[in-house]
């Protein structure tokens, strides 16, 4: 099947359409991330894809210090989504040092390093 798609292609393909799909195990019903051909929790191989809620919290965070002439400081963090999976990302819209552990954040699809990527902004309210 020449148009068969692997898990990475499915995830990246959704991103190019502005959607965040998360792999979910049909056996144990747990989500996982990064995408793969089996469930890392129960090792079942029946994986379906679900639209992410996009809601999560900053699990931990750091500021990568960089000289202003090379673009300045930026945030790197690990976000735990409501689905229970974690992903590395960054929170935009606030200063990198203002990103705090447990901060509620919302995902959006934008670009990182010239490719579609999941980024986060502080949740409103």
């Amino acid at each position: 099947m020449p148009d068969a798609k692997g898990p990475d292609q499915i995830f990246q393909g959704a991103l190019t359409k502005g959607e965040i799909l998360l792999p979910k195990c049909e056996d144990c019903e747990a989500y996982h991330f990064f995408p793969r051909v089996l469930c890392p929790h129960c090792h079942g191989a029946a994986i379906s894809w679900k639209q992410a809620t996009g809601k999560g919290r900053v699990h931990t965070t750091t500021v990568v210090r960089r000289k202003p002439e090379r673009g300045g400081d930026y945030n790197v963090c690990v976000v735990e989504l409501d689905e229970g999976v974690r992903m590395m990302s960054r929170v935009e819209g606030i200063a990198p040092g203002e990103v705090a552990i447990d901060m509620a954040v919302t995902a959006f699809v934008s670009e990182a390093e010239g490719a579609p990527a999941v980024l986060f902004k502080p949740s409103e309210g």
């Binding site: 931990t60 750091t62 990182a112």
Partner: peptide, 20 residues
């Protein structure tokens, strides 16, 4: 799945462990 966010390896990893 981490590279696009430009973590500085290995320090960003250890910094996030320290922060936690």
């Amino acid at each position: 799945y981490e590279a696009p966010y430009n973590p500085r390896y290995p320090i960003s990893a250890y910094a996030m462990a320290a922060a936690r």
